[in-house]
């Protein structure tokens, strides 16, 4: 499956005209990307450290997960929209960037993991869930989102 056509299309799209011509617009969009990265990271760190019994031990983990999931979703949507806009400025360069693909694949795995495994499993009463499954969820979620963020920053350096 060759996705080059997608990037060629993005490179000539209206988005690219905007993102290439106006540095200021790009910077503002990037601000939203960074702010929602902070929000997503905050939600991931809080809920996973709660599942591991590190943070907010006196608040039920069901409450923590429920409250963080909502804002995780909001942050993810803003990240993806601002990310597509930022990609349009350097679409063809990104297509040939290994770190970019590492990030996209990890992101895809992360989204599937979050909505197909983590969220449905955590809907159950946490005290009835195998504690090792909970720990496994928390550790893999921390690793995945750290990798997405770190490889994202590295795109700019590679």
């Amino acid at each position: 499956m060759d996705l080059l056509f997608l990037f060629e299309w993005l490179d000539t799209s209206f988005l690219a005209t905007m993102s290439k011509a106006y540095g200021g617009v790009f910077a503002v969009v990037q601000m939203f990307h960074l702010l929602s990265m902070s929000m997503l990271g905050g939600m991931v760190i809080l809920s996973d450290l709660r599942l591991l019994g590190v943070l907010m031990k006196d608040v039920p983990s069901e409450v923590v997960v429920e409250n963080t999931n909502k804002w995780f979703g909001v942050a993810l949507v803003v990240l993806i929209i601002s990310g597509i806009f930022m990609s349009s400025a350097v679409a063809l360069k990104l297509y040939y960037n290994e770190m970019y693909w590492a990030k996209m694949i990890t992101l895809l795995i992360g989204i599937v993991f979050f909505y197909a495994i983590r969220k449905p499993l955590l809907k159950h009463d946490h005290s009835t869930i195998n504690p090792w499954a909970l720990r496994s969820l928390a550790v893999s979620s921390l690793i995945i989102w750290f990798t997405v963020a770190a490889s994202g920053r590295w795109i700019g350096f590679s």
Partner: peptide, 17 residues
């Protein structure tokens, strides 16, 4: 620089909550 940016997730993430 990457550490500086990624730590936003800890600092700003908690502040945001």
């Amino acid at each position: 620089e990457t550490t500086h940016v990624l730590t936003l997730m800890v600092f700003l993430g908690m502040l945001c909550i």
